[in-house]
Every structure is written in structure tokens, then in C-alpha cells.
Write a protein that binds this DNA or RNA. Structure first.
Lengths: 167, 167
DNA sequence: ATAAAGTTTCAATAAGTATTGAAACTTTAA
DNA sequence: TTAAAGTTTCAATACTTATTGAAACTTTAT
């Protein structure tokens, strides 16, 4: 496979993987592009390379900056902004995990906590509901804790975690 | 909160959580409904409770059966099919993890494996690409292994995993 | 102050997903 | 068989989310 071809294929696949896991396609692609670029890129270059509009590029670059995985850079003497991806994949995954926990899991947990304390009544249906919502709350809450634990090791947590799990 | 209200709220929240994590809303809701029902439900009952069409119910019930987390049941003397959710949350999570690995991660890994062996050339750009795709391949592959490890403990893996991670 | 260079916003639109509903199909009991 | 009961399929449609492109805005150099 030629370099150009491999690169496109890679950007496509990474975008698809992203969107299956709840990160929008363009965002995943821009990130991937910045990841593999030896130099930081301008918005123009991102637009060109990925064939996307200015608005789209702007929105998603900002999104990436909000997630804390892309940074702006200014080159001396130049007016343009350049963008650079966090180069460390572990830290990238860690940041995504933290954000998703904060944005999605924690709010859902709040609702579950609330719902499981409904005005109890002795019907079969209500009892089962109580039991299951409690179980599910426990489960999600543990999963969230686990995510936190895995991710709270400073470096190379995937390898470390696998080693721990094998011991 | 009244039981009915709590139940609706729960079904809503669970549906939303599902769709954020790549499981379609209705599928997540049907599953949640079956989960909290003391008895198995007919398609009619699912449609009624969730206010969805017959087609939608049929498709998503089949989807859940494909994921292996819902089963058909036949009641003696009755012609109708009844549906029942796997009651064990750990096993549920395990099955979902296995399926997603198989359907999404493994295929992406195949592409990455392929792409990182492109016809090398000595440009800065190509070298960086080689390095990063290799790193990403390693990462995704480790993450997938980890998912496998976590999930391959028979029972109560969340708790067990947290204990391991704390040790 | 002003104009050029650059960025952001947002209404319009496109693209992608989910849902409906009715027709086709299958199964069962008489 | 046949018809009633039940299930599946799928084209049409609704809903949701992503993307565009042009106008508004901001910054910087003169």
C-alpha cells in the first residue's frame, strides 16, 4: 500500500471507530490527522487534508481543545493558529475516559440514585423494580469507579492494568 | 416519586445511556423493561409499555436475541412468544463487551495492522505515520485484550477487578 | 482608524439513523 | 385446507446529528 492510500485508510478507520464509540467522526479524524503529522497544522491544512468546511473544522477543533487533547500553537511571526495533538496515547485515553465519566455516567448515576428511592409499595412489580434499579446503580457506579482506577495510574496504564489482572 | 413515574424515568435514562454508548435507544429501553419485569412480556406488552410500533419492537427484540441477552419463552397452551431478559447484570455486560469487541474492535484492528505495513519511504511524514500507527495498533490491541481479561472472570468481575486494581 | 487576515457562529441543508405501518409471510388449530 | 393469530420485512417517513457556507466578529499591522 502507498503512503497516501494508507494514510486515508487510517483516517477513515479511526473516524469510524470513533463514531462507534460516541466520538463524532470528524473530531476523531482531525485528531488522528494531527496525531500523525510531524508538524502542527493550520485550520486550512486540516480542511484541505480532510476535505471539510471551515465551520466544521472550527467547531471540531474547538471540541478537541475542550476535551483537552489538542492545543493551539502560535508560530513566531505568523498570525495563523496552528493545532497540535497531545502525542501521548495513554494520556489521550485517560482524558477521554474522565470526560465521558463526567458528562455521561455521573449524570445518569444521579438519576438512578433518585429513581431507586421511589415511594415503595409492596407489589411484586415494585419490589422487582427496586431490586433491579439497585443492582444497576451498583453496577454502573462500580464500572465508573473502575474506569477511574484504571485511568488514574500516571503512565502506561493499559500495560500496568493487564499485568495486574494477570497476577 | 411514584412507582409509575420512577419507572418511566428509569426507562428514559437507561435508553439515553445506551445511545451514548452506541446501543440504540429502543433496544436499551426494551432490555431495561424486560429486566425489571417480574414476568416475561409479549411483544404487545412491550409495544404498549414503551409506546412503540410493532415493527420497531420486532426488530429490536430480534437484535437483543442476537446479542444473546434476551430469550424467547413459550407459555404452555399459548401461541404467543414471550420475552425474558438475562437477569444477571455481569453476564449482560460480559456479553455486550464480547460482541462489541468482535463487531467493532477486531475489524478495526485488522485495518490498522494492514495500514501500518504500508510501503515505507524515508520522509519525515511517513516515518511519523509508521510510528503512530504502530503505537495506536498496540494501544487498541491492548485495550481489547484488557477488555477480554476483565470480562473473562466468571462472576462479579467488576468487584473482583476493582479489588485487583487496589491490591 | 482601517483593512487584511483570520476565526467563530449559526441558519439552512445534507446525511445518517430510527421508527412506523401495512403487506407478506409463517404457524397452529380446527 | 383454511382462517385466525402471530411475526417479520421493508419502503416511506420522521427524527437526530453533522456539515456547509456566508455573514459577523476579532485581532493585528500599518
Amino acid at each position: 500500500m502507498e503512503f497516501k492510500e494508507a494514510k486515508d485508510q487510517f483516517l477513515q478507520t479511526w473516524g469510524a471507530l470513533g463514531s462507534q464509540w460516541g466520538i463524532n467522526k470528524t473530531m476523531a479524524q482531525i485528531h488522528a490527522l494531527l496525531m500523525i503529522s510531524p508538524d502542527s497544522l493550520s485550520m486550512e491544512e486540516v480542511m484541505e487534508e480532510l476535505q471539510i468546511s471551515r465551520g466544521n473544522a472550527s467547531m471540531n477543533l474547538r471540541g478537541l481543545i475542550d476535551w483537552g487533547i489538542v492545543y493551539k500553537e502560535y508560530k513566531p511571526g505568523e498570525r495563523k493558529e496552528y493545532f497540535k495533538a497531545d502525542q501521548d496515547i495513554d494520556s489521550l485515553a485517560r482524558k477521554i475516559a474522565i470526560e465521558r465519566s463526567k458528562r455521561e455516567i455521573k449524570p445518569a448515576l444521579r438519576v438512578l440514585a433518585d429513581v431507586k428511592n421511589f415511594d415503595d409499595n409492596p407489589s411484586n412489580e415494585a419490589q422487582k423494580f427496586k431490586m433491579k434499579t439497585e443492582e444497576l446503580y451498583e453496577f454502573v457506579s462500580k464500572a465508573d469507579t473502575m474506569l477511574g482506577k484504571i485511568v488514574n495510574q500516571k503512565e502506561n496504564w493499559i500495560t500496568k492494568t493487564i499485568i495486574k489482572l494477570m497476577s
